[in-house]
């Protein structure tokens, strides 16, 4: 079973997958606690619009989509902070806007092509050596950002008003955070596809939150879950011979469901003992 690990393409897939899953799960916890779970979905659809724009302009789709997504993310923060729009509605607006822009530009450039489908579903097995290096570098940037700003980020998540009063530059930190989250989403698109990017951000965190530990422990647990699901998902996908992105998401949802089931059983057990 493990002889597949000799192949460099699987090694690259595992390394870049683990790097991405670490940074996504770290940022994801803050998103989940900010009640911003669907941020990933909105940004990935905006990124889709950007990719279509990039293909239409015949320039590098990833860079164009990166610029478009950062603008989209900042617009979303602006919309939310104005308090005139509910944050879930702003997600819905941006999501459909991104998809619509994408569809129009795909139409303008002559219809769906192989290129677009490769972005929709991603292909972790085809990640190149250079891409792996870029992903590792960006993940280090994101992880060190979270470590350096850890206390301020926690403050921001749990009590934004209090943080503002105590002199923290909330807007700047918010913008920085959103930009980094956007970066991690755009680089994950190549690996796991637009349609499933947000699963890496959200599912491991939701699973870790189920266990009800403190903030730091939850953060570490969710990192473990996401690394596990990427590693197991990739290797399983080879064994069953299916595409990896679906398998990775299935493993992470599997962890979530089995945890919630065992949590349910555990909640019944002590009652039985008492009786």
């Amino acid at each position: 079973m493990l002889e597949i690990l000799q192949y460099e393409f699987i090694q690259r897939a595992l390394i870049s997958g683990i790097a991405i899953s670490l940074s996504c799960s770290l940022l994801g916890l803050f998103l989940v606690l900010k009640r911003f779970s669907l941020f990933g979905d909105a940004i990935s659809h905006v990124a889709f619009g950007g990719i279509a724009l990039g293909l239409f302009l015949k320039s590098n789709p990833i860079w164009v989509s990166f610029i478009v997504s950062v603008l989209g993310g900042l617009a979303m923060v602006k919309l939310n902070s104005s308090k005139r729009v509910y944050s879930d509605s702003s997600v819905a607006v941006l999501l459909s806007f991104g998809l619509a822009v994408g569809l129009v530009f795909i139409g303008l450039s002559g219809g769906f092509s192989i290129d677009i489908t490769s972005y929709l579903f991603g292909s972790i097995l085809l990640v190149s050596y250079e891409e792996t290096l870029i992903i590792i570098f960006l993940s280090i940037v994101i992880i060190s950002f979270v470590i350096v700003f850890y206390k301020r980020l926690v403050y921001l998540v749990f009590n934004e008003e209090q943080a503002k009063i105590s002199g923290l530059n909330v807007t700047l930190l918010n913008y920085l955070f959103i930009i980094l989250a956007t970066v991690s989403i755009v680089i994950s698109i190549r690996l796991i596809g637009i349609l499933m990017v947000s699963s890496l951000l959200i599912i491991p965190n939701v699973a870790a939150l189920l266990l009800g530990y403190g903030f730091k422990k939850t953060l570490l647990l969710s990192a473990c879950f996401s690394v596990l699901s990427v590693a197991i998902g990739t290797i399983l996908s080879y064994e069953i011979n299916v595409t990896p992105s679906g398998m990775i998401v299935l493993v992470s949802t599997g962890i979530f469901f089995s945890l919630s089931a065992s949590k349910y059983v555990a909640s019944k057990l002590p009652q039985n003992k008492n009786q």
Partner: peptide, 15 residues
């Protein structure tokens, strides 16, 4: 037919 995703075992077979 040229599809986007090659199943992982097919990549290995080609190698």
């Amino acid at each position: 037919s040229p599809e986007t995703e090659a199943p992982p075992q097919k990549i290995r077979e080609s190698i």
